[in-house]
Computed example of a mutant assay.
Amino acid sequence: MGFYQLIKEQKVNASIDEVWDFISSPGNLKEITPDYMGFDIISNNLSEKMYPGMIISYKVSPVFGIKTLWVTEITHVKEKEYFVDEQRVGPYAIWHHQHHISAIPNGVLMRDIVSYKPPFGFLGAMANGILIKSKLQEIFDYRTMAVDKKFGKYSS
């Protein structure tokens, strides 16, 4: 049942090089994730830059403080344009997250397309309406704030 997409856009006050350097470094994920999620990368010997086939393991507490293992694979990378991460182990039946960047006047447009399917069929679809959709929105709102704080608010 229920397959969903969340599409978010943010204009960033930085160059393509600056934004790419930041978003393509797995070590920066914690900086753009709300503290209450208890986000910790647990992968050993993690490269500073992502590459196709890279596996990243995290512990995260998305709801009720319950620690969950989440493993993603970076499946596609086109330098300074986009990358894709897909869940291999974690809370979703399907998780596919596209991260796109493109130059705009005075900055960069970041566009995220998250395609996901909660687990548990009908119950997961209900949970999406009650909790998951709003939680994802909250996480991306936090990320918008964190990116603005890092690079400054965009002005055209």
Rank of each mutant, 00 (worst) to 15 (best):
I42K: 13
K117C: 11
E31A: 14
V114E: 04
E18M: 03
S61C: 10
D112S: 02
V19N: 06
E86H: 04
K59F: 05
P91A: 14
S43H: 09
K30M: 03
E79C: 02
S61E: 13
I139N: 03
K133C: 02
S15V: 12
D35Y: 05
I16L: 13
I23G: 00
G107D: 10
Q5Y: 02
G124N: 06
R143P: 06
S156W: 03
Y142R: 02
E18K: 13
W20S: 00
Q137H: 08
V84C: 05
Y92G: 06
S43K: 04
L29N: 09
D85P: 04
F120A: 10
L109T: 06
I132S: 05
S156M: 02
K153R: 11
G124F: 09
S15M: 09
I139W: 03
S57Y: 04
Y4P: 01
K133M: 03
A146M: 13
G2L: 13
K80C: 09
V108Q: 01
E31F: 03
T144I: 01
E138S: 13
K149G: 06
A14T: 14
K30A: 13
L6A: 02
Y36R: 05
P62E: 13
A103G: 08
K150M: 08
F151G: 02
I56T: 09
D21I: 07
S24L: 06
F22T: 08
F64G: 05
N106C: 04
N44P: 07
S61D: 04
I41K: 05
S115F: 02
T33K: 06
F140W: 01
Q87K: 01
I104C: 01
T144P: 00
F39W: 11
T68R: 10
L46T: 11
V108P: 04
I42L: 06
Y142M: 00
D141Y: 08
L69C: 05
F3D: 11
A127M: 14
P52R: 14
D21S: 13
Y58C: 08
I41A: 10
E31C: 00
G65C: 03
Y82R: 03
G121Q: 10
A103E: 15
K78Q: 14
R88L: 15
I66S: 00
G27S: 09
K150Y: 13
D85T: 09
L123S: 08
D148R: 12
I66F: 01
L123A: 14
L69P: 01
L136P: 00
I42F: 08
M145G: 06
N13K: 07
K150C: 07
I66Q: 01
S102V: 12
W70I: 07
Y4Q: 01
Q5H: 07
L123H: 00
D40C: 04
R111S: 10
T68S: 07
D141S: 12
D148E: 15
K30S: 12
K117R: 12
E138A: 11
V84W: 07
S61W: 01
G90W: 12
R143C: 03
K117Y: 03
L46N: 10
Y51I: 00
T68Y: 00
I101P: 09
K67V: 12
K8D: 15
V147D: 09
S15I: 13
E81K: 15
N13P: 07
A127W: 07
N45Y: 06
E31I: 09
D85Y: 04
F120P: 00
V12F: 02
D21Q: 12
Y58F: 06
V12C: 01
T33E: 02
I32P: 00
A146G: 06
